[in-house]
């Protein structure tokens, strides 16, 4: 059976060491200067070190360059792409064509993964980006299981799905949290993710959406953590190429436990589907034990009806 790749975000070099030991096949890192919602900022030195360590362990490194770029950022982006190409990063992740245009010029051999968040929703568009050079697409987290499997059947490039963690539900270029604090006349130092701010709808006070700012603006994350562990078999049978765990807002210790569970689950299913089934309850128990209060584990939109 074709084993999917187990991919996890990393916040720093130390976390990378632990994730490698826990069994990841690939990691996703970046810097907020170029990437959206990175879990930690890797300097150039750290990026170089990360790629070196990972490659020693045959672990791949994908770098986020999925911001929406403005004219003023083109020079620094071009320089960054040259740098990543020289380091033999295994792929860069892009969300819009600015990166494509610059990469063609300065880093034509860097593989490209297309991740425009909620905009990756049909197979023809995925294959379109394939003709433009993308080797992989990271599907919108709002797709359901049937759509995911249907897309995979006709996709001409690799398909990645999220299997665990929060999803991005909103991105604004505005600094909405700082604006609010200014409006209230409150002292505000940058409302980054370490401030652990949440939004609650007026009518549903039990649901808490993480919100924070970085240099790309304001980000809002889902109130629940996606966890598709109980349905991994369907995704593996469907031939999905890569499973991503989003580690933003989690400690290294928690993340290692999550990766360990998914590593076991994938290996177990690929070895013996029967054994896999008997262990799911136990694994879910382990995941629930480290889940923050007020953040339910759910299957997100995998089995949810949406209308329009």
């Amino acid at each position: 059976m074709q084993k999917p790749e187990l991919l996890c975000t990393a916040a720093n070099l130390d976390e990378i060491h632990h994730l490698i030991n826990a069994g990841v096949d690939a990691i996703n890192i970046g810097h907020e200067q170029f990437g959206l919602r990175v879990s930690g900022n890797f300097s150039r030195e750290e990026t170089e070190k990360a790629i070196q360590i990972c490659h020693e362990h045959h672990v791949k490194v994908y770098i986020s360059t999925n911001a929406l770029f403005h004219n003023g950022q083109l020079e620094e982006l071009e320089s960054y792409l040259r740098f990543l190409a020289a380091l033999h990063a295994d792929a860069i992740i892009f969300g819009e064509p600015t990166v494509l245009m610059l990469a063609r010029k300065v880093a034509p051999n860097l593989p490209l993964h297309w991740n425009p968040e909620m905009l990756c929703t049909n197979v023809e568009t995925i294959n379109y980006w394939g003709t433009k050079g993308a080797t992989r697409a990271y599907l919108a987290r709002e797709l359901n299981m049937d759509s995911i499997l249907e897309i995979k059947e006709d996709a001409e490039i690799e398909i990645q799905v999220q299997v665990f963690g929060p999803t991005c539900i909103f991105q604004s270029r505005r600094d909405l949290v700082a604006s609010y604090q200014n409006y209230l006349g409150e002292n505000n130092d940058s409302p980054g993710k370490e401030k652990r701010l949440y939004l609650k709808e007026e009518k549903r006070q039990e649901v808490c959406y993480p919100v924070y700012e970085d240099r790309n603006g304001t980000n809002i994350l889902s109130a629940e953590d996606l966890c598709i562990l109980e349905h991994l078999d369907e995704l593996i049978d469907g031939g999905i190429d890569s499973f991503q765990i989003e580690g933003i807002l989690r400690t290294t210790e928690e993340l290692v436990k999550i990766v360990t569970v998914f590593r076991k689950a994938i290996d177990s299913y690929c070895l013996d589907p029967q054994t896999y089934r008997t262990q799911i309850a136990g694994w879910m128990e382990q995941l629930r034990a480290i889940q923050p209060a007020k953040r339910p584990l759910t299957t997100g939109f995998y089995f949810k009806e949406q209308v329009f």
């Binding site: 909620m118 905009l119 709002e142 539900i169 909103f170 709808e201 109130a223 939109f301 949406q306 209308v307």
Partner: peptide
């Protein structure tokens, strides 16, 4: 780049 609707009302914004 917003799916608040999808999350709050199960209506697909895009």
């Amino acid at each position: 780049r917003c799916v608040l609707s999808n999350h709050f009302t199960a209506r697909d914004s895009n």
